[in-house]
Amino acid sequence: MPDFTDEELLAYADERLSSERSAEIERALRNERLIQDRFVALLSERDRGQTSVGEIWRQGSLSCPSRSVWEAFVTGRLGDGLTQYLKFHVEVIGCRPCAANLADLSHHAHFPESERRTRKIFQSSAGHLPQ
């Protein structure tokens, strides 16, 4: 039977693990009754409100930079200190929501601002245009 810490199981529930580790836990949850029971017990305990300050920070993603900060990162408008923290946040900590934000912003970064604005207007009004 695979060995997972309580912290890993809760991080899995919050989608804060790497894809590889999440897949391992998901397989174990499908096949191992003991892991399923432990996982349910951990979630029940957490939902009773007996949470630590650290858990509140993790659940609320309080260490995650805003999307506008990630946009400034992609466009190279940040100083070295914050740039290093953002790289650490995604590469070392492995924050999946921030990695998704970064991927999305990086994908759109190659469009000139006017083209982005035009696409946004078109996409928001596409349903209102006559066929």
Rank of each mutant, 00 (worst) to 15 (best):
G76Y: 14
D47I: 14
L129K: 11
Q36D: 03
S66H: 11
V92A: 11
G81I: 00
F39Q: 02
I25M: 09
F4K: 05
L82S: 03
Q36I: 05
Q59A: 12
R21E: 00
A13R: 05
S114N: 06
R119F: 07
L78F: 00
Q50A: 08
T118H: 03
G54K: 13
Q59R: 13
L62N: 06
H128N: 08
L105A: 02
C98R: 00
G94A: 08
A126Q: 09
G49E: 08
A11I: 02
L82V: 05
R16V: 03
L102M: 15
R33T: 15
T118D: 11
N101F: 06
G79Q: 07
H108T: 01
A72N: 11
D14P: 03
R96K: 14
Y12W: 11
S125A: 12
V53W: 13
E26A: 12
Q50D: 12
H89D: 07
G54S: 09
Q131I: 04
A28L: 06
Q59D: 11
S18M: 04
C98V: 14
L102Y: 00
S44R: 06
C64H: 13
L9Q: 02
F111T: 10
D80R: 09
Q36F: 06
S44G: 10
L78R: 00
A72L: 15
L29H: 01
